[in-house]
Design a protein around this nucleic acid. Structure first.
Lengths: 336, 336
DNA sequence: GTGAAAGCGCTAACAT
DNA sequence: ATGTTAGCGCTTTCAC
């Protein structure tokens, strides 16, 4: 391959100095229209595209917004990322995504590596970072936004909601509809601390009514429709009297619904199913699963907006935006 | 915020020169154990983490592997990204993801921006890049891998399969099972060129048997379970005689299955449904939907491996790896 | 409006 | 095993 083109090549081709070329390319207005045009034309002709490395090193800031998520296989995180990505279009900022696999040490490493690219801001998932990670972030001197969870201490800004409260609210709604014999099915609870907090919130409400889960089945797998189906068969075989099952999320709950439909068990009359997130998959059988709808895209979008805003602003202010899920009972709502 | 720590701060704290500190931190073995230890300790104490910008600018290479996908909301792309991410763990390389929204101009911009970070390699989705994008990539002088599709010209390496062949194979399998009256339902065909090629391959096989789609419904929406349900209701109402429906993918097909189950239409006896990808969602009703299983994670993993290998190798060789989908008929297979 | 000089923080190449 | 020198490609600053 031939040597990469540099600013000097463009400047030479356009017959101006390096500096004028730089200014023209970046849209600085202190350049004559004529020079500007020639530079841009020259750049295009010789196939020049800049070197962000040098630009950022020199200007001591980059256009990157680091976004750290625990998983790509759980669709809610790509959806949040999508919101970030959309919000950044046209701002000149660019998202860079990192994955931690729900591992706090990996998170530390991923965050450290990202910071060493001197991003303009960082978005991280949840509030359960390890102390060293929190320190890294808070000392970085850039806007930090934690997303998806508000049940913990903020490093800087937060856009999310209380999983605990969401669990409590769902339990209260189900109790109000007369459900009394509850089961729980969860996947990946070891690592997914937010799912654990929903369960806790749910249990709190049950206890307040003098109840508790009569059965609980958890498995360390990525939550999936197939697992939900299998676990539901097991829990209902072992506990045929359950009239309501709370799941760690909608994927698992939907698998449960598939089992019930297959085996002719009435949903929600005979047994009510309740998941979390309000995923699109629920539209396969509208209203049959109760859920808490979460605004993943909006959360990602709002987080990115906070960063964009705080880069423009003279002084930074931490914000906390709560986008509490809405509890949707679906068909259950039509029963008294 | 206090000024960021640099290598010089570490070197001073450890009582060595900048260069020794640099070597120690990067694990160069030409450093005495004593110095190495002191430097690493000093770095930790003063909270130093390097500046990749400067490091990469100086060494003229970065540890980034750029990965460009069309969408984050279609789960197959995050799954492929996940494979890339896994393959890169422990290599010292880091993935950086970009999203194009199926827009060729956006793709050009995203690729250009990524290249200006001087990545060590690039992974892009599909083979339908615009000419300028192809030129950008081929002149970058780094290993390029196109993934998910082999129905087109390679820029460098390819890991994918023929969507056209997958469509043909599915049609042949369904014809063999005696299906004769075909319908087609697709989402997002304008942008999803690969789905279009599957449809074409399917049609080719039908024509060879003197058949064609008797009905076709397409809608420019992100493919979803809800859309699949609605479109299936429509197509079966308008064309009650169809005995097989081919969908642009599994999400849409699953929505169709939900409609059929809901309305008591026998699947696959009365109408066979066929999707694409072998998504986990199908495990809700195992075997009811025929599908072509694609190895998204493996494809991402293999693509990353090619790049890792070619960075190590003295001379680069382009590779083409075909991971052709497997046609799974499920319950249809048990009919004669 | 344009240019020349200096330097961002690091690493490669060459000393020692 | 360690240090010195030069420079990566750009932007900032300050001349003109």
């Amino acid at each position: 391959m031939t040597k990469r083109k540099t600013l000097i090549d463009v400047a030479t081709a356009a017959g101006v100095s390096k500096m004028t070329a730089s200014r023209a390319l970046r849209g600085d207005r202190d350049v004559s229209a004529a020079s500007k045009e020639r530079v841009i034309k020259a750049a295009k002709e010789i196939g020049y595209f800049g070197n962000n490395l040098a630009a950022s090193l020199s200007s001591e800031r980059s256009d990157i917004i680091g976004v750290v998520v625990p998983s790509l296989t759980n669709i809610v995180f790509p959806q949040a990322m999508s919101g970030v990505s959309d919000a950044l279009v046209g701002t000149g900022l660019q998202p860079a995504f990192g994955v931690t696999d729900y591992d706090l040490d990996r998170e530390y490493e991923v965050v450290g590596r990202m910071l060493s690219w001197r991003p303009a801001g960082m978005i991280v998932t949840g509030v359960d970072q390890s102390a060293p990670t929190r320190q890294l972030l808070s000392e970085a001197g850039i806007p930090i936004v934690q997303i998806m969870d508000s049940d913990g201490d903020a490093i800087d800004s937060i856009v999310g909601f209380s999983h605990r409260a969401a669990g409590t609210e769902m339990a209260q709604a189900l109790l109000k509809k007369g459900r009394q014999r509850f089961g729980y099915i969860g996947c990946n609870l070891q690592s997914d601390l937010r799912a654990g907090r929903r369960r806790q919130g749910f249990e709190d409400a049950l206890r307040q009514s003098g109840l508790n889960f009569e059965a609980s089945l958890t498995r360390e797998c990525l939550s999936s429709v197939g697992d939900g189906r299998a676990l539901t068969q097991q829990i209902l075989t072992e506990n045929p009297d359950l009239d309501c099952i709370y799941y760690s999320n909608d994927d698992v709950a939907f698998g449960g619904l598939c089992y019930c439909l297959h085996s002719g068990m009435g949903v929600p009359d005979r047994v009510a199913l309740s998941g979390f997130n309000g995923l699109g998959i629920l539209q396969g059988f509208p209203g049959l699963i109760a859920t808490s709808t979460t605004l993943r895209r909006d959360i990602g979008h709002a987080a990115a907006d906070i960063i964009v805003g705080s880069l423009k602003a003279a002084k930074r202010a931490s914000q906390t935006i709560i986008m509490q899920p809405q509890t949707l009972l679906g068909a259950l709502d039509e029963t008294p």
